[in-house]
Design a protein around this nucleic acid. Structure first.
Length: 466
DNA sequence: GTAGGGTTAG
C-alpha cells in the first residue's frame, strides 16, 4: 500500500538496524524485571525480526507467567517479521501455548510447521499432557513413531507420564522395554517415571522392583515411592520408606513429609507422626510452610487439636491450607464457634475453606447456621463444587426444604454433576428426608437408567509396534 | 538457545 511505502521510505535500513538494537536493549531490561507486557509492546515497535534468542526468552517468560495473550502476540510478531523462523523457536512457542493450557494454539502451529524435529514432537506431547489430554499425547507419541522420528529420554518421560494418567499398563510395559532397548537404563528420571507409572497402574510389586534396582534414587524417586504406597493403601510401607530415605541420607522434598504424614493420619498413628515431626525439626524442615501445614493436618486428623494449634501458632505456618485444616478441626469436633471465629479471621478463602465450615454445621445439625452460611456463600464465595452441592443437599434435607432442594437439583444439572454417584445419593437422601417419596422414586429410576447408559469407556488401547 | 520426573487442606 502507498501509505506503507511512504512510511517505509522515511526509515533507511541503517536507522532500522540501530532501532532494533536499541529496542532489544529495552526489551531485555523489561524481561529482567518480569515486565512481559511492556517487553512485548516494544517488540511491535519494529516490523523487523529481532534476534532468535530474544524470542526464545520472550516465550519462556510467557510460559512461566502463563500468559497466553502475550504468547500469541510474540508469535504473531515473529511470523510477521520472519516468515520462516527456525524450528527451535516454533518449538518454544508450542511449549508456551501448552504451558498456558491452550492446546488448539499449539496444535495449529505444529500442523503448520514446514519442518519438525524431535523437539517439536516432544513439545507437542508435553503440551497435550499439560492440557490434560493424555490420550492425545499418546497418539502424538504414536504419530512420531510412525513418521520415523526417533524418541529420546524426554519423549519417554512424557509418554510414561501420559500412561500414568490414563492407566495404560500395557503400553507402559512396552515403553519400559523400549527404554531398556535404547540404553536409557541408569537415567534416574526415566527410572523414576517407571516407578511412578507402575505404581499408578496399581502394580506396586513391579514399581518396587524397579525402585530397588535403581542405583541411587534421588529425592523425587523417594517421593514417588512413598506417594504410590500411600495411594495404594499401604500406609505402613509408605512410612517405612520415608524412614528408609533418611538412612540413605537423601534430603527429602517437603512433599515427602506431607505424604508420610498423611499415611500417619490414615493410620491414626500420632506417635509415628511425632517422630516425623522430630525429624523435621532435626533437619530444619520445620520452617517450611508445606511441612508445617502437613503437621497441623496430621495432628488434626489424629484428634490432637491442641498440638495442631501449637504448630498453627508458630510463625510462618499460617497459610490458606493450614488455616483451612484448623477451621476443619474445630468444625468437625463440634467447636463451631471457634471454627467460625477462625474462619472470619482468614485473609483469603477458597471453596475448600467454605466447605470445611459448612461440613461442621451439617455434621452437628446446625441447620439454621448452615442455611445462613449457604446464603452468605452464594453471595461471597466464587466457585462452589461437588462437595458444596452435597452439603447443601444435606441442609435441605435437615430443614425439609424441598423447594430449595429442587433448585439445587437444577443447578447440579447445569454444572454437569447429575451423573455423579455421590451427588445422586445425596439427592435421593434429600428427597426422602423431605418426605417426598414420589420425587425420590422418580430420581432413583433416572439414576438407574443413566448408570446403565454411561458405561465407562475403555482407554486408548494404543499399541506401539517395535 | 532446547527439552524430562514429584504436590499437603473439605
Amino acid at each position: 500500500m502507498a501509505g506503507g511505502s511512504i512510511l517505509g521510505g522515511l526509515l533507511s535500513n541503517k536507522t532500522r538496524y540501530t532501532d532494533v538494537k536499541a529496542l532489544t536493549r529495552q526489551i531485555l531490561t523489561h524481561l529482567k524485571a518480569n515486565r512481559l507486557k511492556e517487553a512485548v509492546s516494544i517488540l511491535f515497535a519494529s516490523p523487523d525480526c529481532f534476534s532468535y534468542s530474544l524470542y526464545a526468552h520472550l516465550f519462556q517468560l510467557c510460559s512461566s507467567n502463563l500468559d497466553i495473550i502475550e504468547a500469541r502476540k510474540v508469535e504473531s510478531q515473529l511470523f510477521g517479521a520472519c516468515p520462516t523462523p527456525p524450528t527451535f523457536l516454533s518449538n518454544r512457542a508450542i511449549e508456551a501455548f501448552g504451558k498456558c493450557g491452550c492446546l488448539p494454539d499449539a496444535n495449529e502451529l505444529f500442523d503448520e510447521m514446514p519442518l519438525r524435529d524431535g523437539g517439536s514432537w516432544n513439545a507437542m506431547i508435553k503440551a497435550c499432557l499439560q492440557c490434560e489430554s493424555s490420550e492425545k499425547a499418546l497418539s502424538f507419541f504414536q504419530g512420531m513413531h510412525k513418521e520415523g522420528v526417533c524418541a529420546n529420554e524426554v519423549t519417554f518421560a512424557s509418554a510414561l507420564g501420559a500412561c500414568g494418567d490414563v492407566l495404560e499398563l500395557c503400553l507402559s510395559r512396552q515403553l519400559h522395554g523400549l527404554v531398556v532397548k535404547y540404553g536409557f537404563r541408569g537415567n534416574v528420571i526415566l527410572e523414576s517415571s517407571l516407578v511412578d507409572v507402575y505404581g499408578k497402574c496399581e502394580t506396586m510389586s513391579e514399581s518396587r522392583r524397579i525402585f530397588d534396582e535403581i542405583e541411587s534414587p534421588n529425592n523425587v524417586t523417594w517421593n514417588i515411592i512413598v506417594r504410590r504406597y500411600l495411594e495404594m493403601g499401604n500406609k505402613n510401607e509408605a512410612v517405612i520408606m520415608f524412614f528408609k530415605m533418611f538412612r540413605a541420607e537423601v534430603r527429602p522434598l517437603s512433599y515427602t513429609f506431607s505424604n508420610a504424614l498423611v499415611a500417619c493420619s490414615d493410620m491414626r498413628a500420632v506417635k509415628v507422626g511425632m517422630q516425623i515431626h522430630g525429624v523435621a525439626i532435626k533437619i530444619k524442615f520445620d520452617e517450611e510452610e508445606v511441612v508445617l501445614g502437613s503437621l497441623i493436618d496430621m495432628y488434626v486428623k489424629c484428634g490432637n487439636i491442641e498440638s495442631a494449634r501449637r504448630v498453627f501458632d508458630l510463625p510462618g505456618s499460617r497459610d490458606l491450607i493450614s488455616w483451612t485444616s484448623m477451621v476443619s478441626a474445630y468444625a468437625m469436633s463440634g467447636r463451631l464457634r471457634e471454627a467460625r471465629e477462625l474462619f472470619d479471621e482468614m485473609s483469603e478463602r477458597n471453596v475448600i475453606s467454605w466447605n470445611a465450615l459448612l461440613a461442621g454445621y451439617t455434621r452437628f445439625l446446625q441447620w439454621k447456621e448452615a442455611s445462613e452460611f449457604v446464603y452468605l456463600m452464594g453471595r461471597t464465595a466464587e466457585n462452589i463444587n461437588r462437595i458444596t452441592f452435597q452439603l447443601m443437599l444435606n441442609v435441605c434435607g435437615g430443614l425439609s426444604d424441598v423447594d430449595t432442594g429442587r433448585q439445587i437439583h437444577g443447578s447440579i444439572y447445569r454444572h454437569g454433576l447429575s451423573s455423579n454417584i455421590v451427588i445422586g445419593n445425596a439427592l435421593l437422601d434429600m428427597y426422602v428426608k423431605c418426605g417426598n417419596l414420589r420425587s425420590a422414586a422418580v430420581w432413583l429410576r433416572q439414576m438407574k437408567q443413566s448408570r446403565g447408559a454411561a458405561r465407562p469407556m475403555n482407554s486408548s488401547g494404543i499399541i506401539v509396534s517395535e
